[in-house]
Structures are given as C-alpha cells and as structure tokens.
Design a protein around this nucleic acid. Structure first.
Length: 854
RNA sequence: GCCGCGGUGGCGGAACUGGUAGACGCGUAGGUCUCAAAAACCUAUGAGGUUUAUCCUCAUGUGAGUUCGAUUCUCACCCGCGGCACCA
C-alpha cells in the first residue's frame, strides 16, 4: 500500500497487533474500565442485573490452558455484549487455591504450597489480563487466604451448631500413596484419582456434612433451573431416589428378624433365599456369639467360617472387587428365614455382592428374575451341592417362555405377566407391585419406604494444604467448636510435608501450643483439613463482598447480585461441585442468610479443546498448545476469535494451527478495510445508501445480536466474515463505500470478540483523545426492514427433486398462482413436465414450489 | 449391563418450525507478485458420469417407514465418546 500524503496523522496501515494490544491493555487498566461492580451494588436494578460466573480455576504451575481461554472468552463475550446492551454485569474472578498438586509439589521439593500457589496465581492473572477478560479484579479472592477460609470455617461451625456437621467412624477409601482418605468420587476404577495407586479400606473417625437432610429438595430443585438435561439426569441418578418396600422375615427357631429392601416385591413368591452383607449387624452378632443359634446349627464351625469370610471381604480393595467382576462367593449361616407368602424356609447366606450401605444391607433372593441372584444360586449349587437352592419362575415375559429357568438368558427383570403367584397370577408386573405392597402392609409383613443412594458428605482430609477444621478436643477427647474470636483458625506453617500416614498438622508445634494457650492444657486441635470442595462450593457468595471481616457477605450485596444468572463450568464438575453448592445454598437460606433456593439459574458446559492429533492434550503426548505462544505470534484477539470460531462451545474440538492463521487474516482484513476507509477522502458523511453491503450489515447485526445470547459464537463470527467479504469486494469494485456510521456499527459488533482491535479502530474513527471506549458504547441496533431481503430465490421441485430455481420479488411472495405458473414456465422444469400428468402443486410461500407428476 | 451425548466433503463445522445439504474457515490445485521462498492476493474445489450443460446420477453411519419433500420425524441396527456400575 502507498502512503497517503493527505493523512493528517500517521495512521499505521499495517495491523500491528502487539502494539495495539499492549497499548489498550495499559489504558484499560489505568482507567479501571470494569472495576466498579462492588461499589455499585446499591444501584443494581433487579431487572438489569446479570451475574456471570466462571467456575474458578485451580492455579496450576503450568499456567493457563487453551481450554481455560475458551470458556473465559465465551463468558467475557457475554459480559461485554450485555454491558453494551445496558445490563449491569457482575463478572468476578478468584482462585480455587487449596489442593493436592501444590502439596505434592511441596513433598517433592520442600517449597511451601503458599509460595508455589502465589506464583501460579500471578502467572494466571498476567495471562488473563493479557487476554482482555473483563473481570472485576476488585472481587479477586483465593480460598487459601485466611480472610476467605475464616468464613469457610464459619460455615462449618454453622453446620455444626445445627447438627449438620457430625463425626462418625466409617470405613473410608484410603490412598496409601497420598496418605489420605478419599471421597468415593475420587476413586476411579479402584484407584486414586490423582496418583493412580490402588485404594484400600480403612476404618477412621471422620467429619461428615449431612447433605442427606436436603436430598428431596436437591432433587425437586432441579426442575426450577435451566441446566442441560443430561446434567440434571446425572444429578438425579446420583441422588438415586427409589420407592420400594421393607419386608420383615422372621428367622426360624430364633428371636431374630431380617429386614430386606426391595423394589420388586411382586416376585416374592419366587423368593428362595436371603443374603446379608458381610457388614450386616446380624452377622457381627453371630460372630460375637450374641445370637442364640438353634441346635441344628454347628455354631463353632459357622462362626469360624463367617469370621474368615467377613475379614477377607473387608480386606478386599476396590480394585479387587472390580477385577472379580460379578463372580459370586459366600458363606451359609445355617439359619433360615421364613417366606410368609409361601411358608417356605429360605437359607440365609452372607455374601459381599450385597452392599452394606444400600437399603438395609440384606437382600431377598429371587433367582428366576434377578441376574445377580441367579448367578449366586449357580455358585451355591455348584460349590455346595448339599445346599441346593430352588429357582422358581413367577414371571412370563413377552417371548411367552414359561419353562423352568435354567439359563441366565431366561432371567428377565423388567416386564411380563405374573404366574405361580396365587392372587397375583395374570397381572402385569406393574400392577402386581402395588397390589402385593398393599397386601404386605395390610398383613404387617412390610412397610413402604423411599430410599436414596446419596450418602452424607465426608469432608475430612489428612492433608496439609486445606482449610483447618475449626474444632478443638478437650482432654477427654470431646470435640468443641473453635470460638468465633479465634477465627480464622490459622493453618500452621511449621509442618513437615513428608507423608507419615497421619495428618501433617500433627507435626506443628505452634498449632498444639496455640490450642493449649487458648483452651487449656491437654487440649488438642483437630488435625484434619477440609475437602477442597467445601472451599469451592460457596465462593460465588463471597465474591459479592470479598473483604468483609464481619460476615461472610453483606446481605444487601447478596440480594443485589445473587443468584448467579449464568454459570459456565466444565462437564467434570457436573455432580459434586453443583450438588454441594446447592446444599450450602439451601442450608444458608434456612438459616436466614439467603432468600433464594437455587444458586445457579442457568448453567452451560464448555467442551474440551483437543490437541492437533484429536487427542486430549497432555504433556506426555507432546500435543499441548501454549496460549502464550499463540498470543505472541498472532495476538490475543486472534486467539479469542479462533477459539470461538472452532465450533459449538459445548463440543470437543481439535486444535488446528492453520485455522488460527485464517482468523488472523480475517482480523487483519478488518483492520485494513477500516483504515483504508479512513484514509480515503470521500469517507465523510454520505447518507446510508441502499446497497447490498448496507443490507448485509443489518443482517449481520441481527445475526450477531441473536447468536451471542445463544452462545453460538461460531456462526456469529461466520456472519461477520461474510460481511467483510462483501464489503471488501465492493471496495475493490470501486462501488460506493459504507458511511462512517456503518463502519462504526461493524466495529461495535466485533468489540466483544476482539476487544483490542475494536478499541483501536474505534479510536481511529473517533480521532479524538476524549472518545470513550467502544466497550462502553451502546450495542448497535438494526433496521428490520433493511435487514430483509427484497428478493427471494425459491427452489422448484418435480417429484421431490430440485429441477430449477426462481427468483421473485418479496412482494410477490404470496401470489401463489403467479409463482407456480412461473415455476412451470422454467425450461429446466418444462422438460420434466412434458408428456406427464400433473397431479399436485404445492407452494410454500418464499420457500419452495413442489410439483408432482405421473 | 444401565444412563446420556454424538456420527454431514480431505479437515473444523453450517442448515430457522420437515422446504434449494455443505454457510464460514482450513486444506488442496492452478495462477499473480518475487532472483527465490515465505507472506499476501486471484480462481477453482462433495463424489462420479457424459453430450462440458441453465445437464444427469449418487450423497448427511446402516436398513426400513411416514411425506410432494427427511441431516431434521418414527422404528430397528452399527460405530464412537462421556458417566455410572453387583444399588436389590
């Protein structure tokens, strides 16, 4: 390009993204462009407030990942778009800063987690600012800061006061490598989620949160929120509400009774045995000799066998259970339960396929209609021929097979008609279920119950880098809450990180001295810390008032901003984080601190960005894309627009380096077009012409305006590209250019996506030092009539196949007869109509003409 | 096994409520510029056919169905991904 002599100031005709982005990052930071939401809380109008939340990141030493860039950019586009639409946007930022990686690093190197975490946060902060994510940095918080975890501890104590934080001895998943207890959800295929070591079982006294108090509301509340349906399904499944019946069976020749839970009492005429979990109370009572066994039972032998089996079952690791799969084992107790329906004696076995934690830990066996029961009977009949268990068919399925059940393929569980079941015969199983339940309740044999799969939340962790549990024990070992004036109950720093199998906090002299000084001699602190999910399940409340030292957040501020209007979160947090956050919200509401039921009104997930090879990015595969490098080469705007252009936000998409260049080309063309426009002499204030570009501009404004709220950023960008193509072609053609307003509108459209470039162009256009930021301007509106095409091209089909097309003026759109006549006149259509009989004519206005011939 | 999501050119992906499949971008080929390369720009680009055209045939995982018309709706199946998993 040649330099224009007439240009008043030197306008750089080359898109220098480095200079532009550096300049505006500094200017914005100096102006504190988006740093006012905390002060504004009193002016927030309910109808206009918009709380946009990004699931805060764990600041890992590796720095920002391109996946972070995707979701942060998406949310930032929403923030900028809605601000330009006049909404009051709350867009906070913080760090999920407690956690294992920093601690593991400390074990390896001795560098304290506080130090590495601070460094990692600094890196993240620098990278995020470089990407122009328009967070309100005054909200910034970190869960490892005493000013934050003081209130995590406060929350614990509130739960403790209400009896919702309690201690219990429980078998827990123990990772021998991390030397800590793991929550069920941190055990993946029998191995530790973090280090992959085999997980074993261990009995320990632990702290729990009683989330089960809210199970019904956690379920029903899902109907109020706008979340992806699959996510809701997963939560429902996790809570696992089931209707069934608890049936009591008396144990023959003893005083004992066994209660079994079942959802399928309809098959009870086919029940032929009972199985207890190894942890069942009756089993331990027998072992301890607390049960008067009938004389027929060889007590010593049975007790010995049971003891051995129970011991072996307890020792089994999750992994062993997995690899054994469905292979059955078990021990006969010598006892029998009476089936009240058939008066048959059912042998009572102990087997580890029955889970102690579900239902009553005892199951009534119907081998004909439950695969597990059938497998168990196969095991018994094979290994204990003298203890044969009968298989009775009580349901006939749709295949009509009513022969004796001898193969597992014949065992069917969920449909059919009752047989061999007296008063249930002939009924469909779905009718039989309520009928037998009524019968059992009337005869005192059982009681309808609802059970849940959801367990209370085990929050104790034998780790260092977490929030200390604010509990102290008196010399008798009785727990007491840490007094309010002693919060924050500081995490000690004089600890040995090396794992010993005990909580690292035990090694802190200061911690013990502090406790004794404040509470008395012989007093000890709780040495465990909290699961980091506790920290991360209430942070969205603290954001509104992150420096408050008197309360976890000011009620007025909470009222102004909450609940969260839009939550962007990775699919990996679907179950736990969301469930826990909802639990805290409901608890705090019940304590009068909050006035809403659900914390996250609308939620969406971002997909994963894969390596160029289509596989998940990982260091070992060497397919990791570093966002810093992309920014250095092409600029943050290109990185942002590229990631938004890759495809639908919630899909997994592979990285493509050449497509990045394609986006860069697009932004450069925009820059050159706008600058070229300004450099041309005739640019001033021509009236808006009715040319094709102007029409397309209005269509583009409409498209972008519609697509952004739907998160369809890829198609919004495609529309802007199309507009630029047309505009450029017109300029090359020498056709009349756009007027300045149109150019401005386009720059505004681009602003949420490429904030640096848009700002630069905006100021070039305005050419005044005092011009305000493009990001503070009003979103452009479009003229609906102008956006409309004045002509439409419609297809003409003969027998369903496209044979021609027809362009008509929009006003003629509804003149059915004329349009069909014109369609028939087309020569390309004529030859298909010739010598054939026209049987049907269809016209869908503005869409298609369809002719049917014979 | 159960629950959920998905399958469209060489690639990422478009397609409103059933109405012209392949927008936009990448890649590729040819060209322009250049001593040359890169970059940039221009043209073409689903596959196949022939009479090279305002042409025809095929084509949205497979097979059927509904319809004037199906990527879109229904049924059956195949494949891939994610989650749960001996939950009674």
């Amino acid at each position: 390009m040649t330099k224009k002599q007439s240009a008043p100031a030197a306008i750089n005709t080359i898109y220098d993204h480095q200079a532009i982005e550096k300049k505006w990052q500094t200017v914005w930071e100096d102006q504190e462009l988006f740093q006012h939401s905390l002060k504004q809380y009193q002016q927030v109008e309910a109808a206009k407030k918009l709380y946009l939340l990004f699931a805060f990141a764990y600041p890992s030493g590796a720095g920002l990942h391109v996946g972070h860039v995707e979701s942060k950019t998406a949310l930032d586009i929403l923030a900028r778009y809605y601000r330009m639409q006049g909404q009051q946007v709350f867009f906070p930022v913080g760090w999920d800063a407690f956690g294992l990686p920093a601690e593991n690093y400390a074990i390896k190197t001795g560098v304290p987690p506080a130090k590495t975490t601070k460094k990692a946060i600094d890196t993240f902060r620098r990278q995020i600012k470089r990407l122009a994510i328009s967070y309100d940095w005054q909200t910034e918080l970190a869960t490892c800061h005493p000013g934050y975890y003081q209130w995590t501890q406060w929350l614990f104590l509130e739960l403790y006061k209400k009896g919702l934080a309690y201690q219990a001895k429980a078998p827990v998943n123990w990772c021998p490598s991390c030397q800590t207890v793991l929550a069920n959800e941190q055990v993946v295929e029998g191995a530790c989620e973090r280090c992959d070591s085999e997980v074993s079982q261990k009995e320990m006294k632990q702290w729990f949160f009683k989330i089960t108090d809210y199970q019904d509301e956690l379920l029903s509340g899902l109907d109020q929120v706008d979340w992806p349906e699959p996510t809701k399904q997963q939560q429902r499944h996790w809570i696992g509400k089931k209707q069934g019946i608890e049936i009591s069976y008396s144990v023959v020749d003893t005083q004992e009774e066994i209660v079994c839970f079942t959802t399928r009492p309809d098959t009870n005429f086919g029940a032929t045995f009972v199985v207890l979990a190894p942890e069942h109370q009756l089993v331990s009572q027998i072992i301890k000799g607390q049960v008067n066994l009938p004389e027929s039972v060889k007590a010593t032998a049975v007790i010995q066998q049971l003891r051995a089996y129970v011991k072996q079952a307890q020792k089994k690791t999750e992994l062993e259970r997995q690899t054994e799969g469905r292979k059955k084992s078990g021990v006969f107790t010598g006892l029998y339960a009476l089936n009240p329906l058939t008066n048959k004696k059912m042998p009572i076995w102990v087997s580890d396929f029955v889970l102690a934690g579900f239902g009553t830990g005892a199951v009534v066996g119907v081998p004909g209609h439950d695969q597990r029961d059938f497998e168990f009977v196969e095991f018994v009949n094979r290994s204990h021929p003298q203890q044969q268990i009968e298989v009775i068919r009580v349901v006939v399925g749709s295949d009509g097979d009513d022969s004796p059940i001898t193969q597992i393929e014949q065992v069917q569980e969920d449909h059919g008609t009752m047989i061999n079941s007296e008063f249930l015969n002939g009924l469909d199983i779905h009718q039989a279920i309520p009928k037998i339940m009524d019968y059992m309740e009337e005869h005192g044999l059982g009681k309808r119950v609802t059970i849940y799969k959801l367990r209370d939340w085990l929050i104790s962790r034998q780790r260092y880098w977490g929030t200390p549990i604010p509990i102290v024990y008196d010399p008798d070992g009785k727990p007491h809450p840490v007094k309010k004036e002693h919060l924050p109950w500081l995490l000690p720093t004089d600890v040995d990180f090396k794992p010993t199998g005990e909580s690292p906090l035990r090694s802190s002299k200061e911690f013990i001295q502090r406790t004794e000084k404040l509470y008395g001699k012989g007093w000890r602190p709780e040495f465990d810390t909290m699961d980091t999910f506790v920290d991360s399940s209430w942070y969205y409340l603290r954001y509104t008032d992150p420096r408050n030292q008197q309360e976890f957040a000011n009620p007025q501020r909470l009222k102004s901003w909450l609940p969260v209007d839009f939550y962007m979160i990775g699919p990996e947090h679907i179950v736990l984080h969301l469930l826990y956050s909802r639990f805290f919200t409901k608890f705090l509401r019940d304590q009068g601190y909050l006035d809403f039921d659900e914390p996250f009104l609308k939620m969406r997930h971002q997909g994963m960005i894969l390596g160029p090879d289509g596989k998940k990015m990982s260091k070992s595969k060497g397919n990791v894309i570093n966002p810093d490098k992309v920014v250095a080469e092409f600029g943050a705007d290109t990185l942002r627009v590229y990631e938004m252009f890759m495809g639908p936000l919630d899909a997994d998409k592979p990285w493509d380096a050449s497509s990045v260049r394609g986006v860069y080309r697009f932004l450069r063309r925009v820059y050159e077009l706008v600058i070229g426009h300004l450099n041309r002499a005739d640019q001033t204030s021509k009236p808006l012409s009715n040319g094709q570009v102007v029409q397309q501009l209005h269509q583009t404004i409409k498209k972008v305006t519609d697509d952004v709220p739907k998160l369809k950023f890829n198609t919004a960008i495609a529309a802007m590209m199309e507009f630029v193509n047309t505009w450029e072609a017109q300029v090359k053609d020498g056709s009349p250019a756009l007027d300045l307003t149109a150019v401005q509108n386009f720059v505004q459209l681009l602003a949420p996506f490429a904030p640096f470039l848009a700002e630069e162009l905006w100021h070039q256009i305005k050419a005044a030092k005092t011009a305000k930021s493009v990001h503070l301007t009003d979103w452009p509106s479009y003229d609906a009539t102008l956006a409309q095409q004045n002509q439409v091209t419609i297809g003409v089909q003969v027998n369903g196949k496209l044979r021609g097309e027809l362009t008509i003026d929009l006003e003629e759109k509804d003149h059915q007869k004329q349009v069909i006549a014109q369609a028939k006149d087309l020569s390309s259509v004529q030859k298909w109509l010739k010598d054939r009989q026209l049987v049907k004519e269809i016209y869908v206005p503005g869409k298609i003409v369809s002719l049917v011939v014979k």
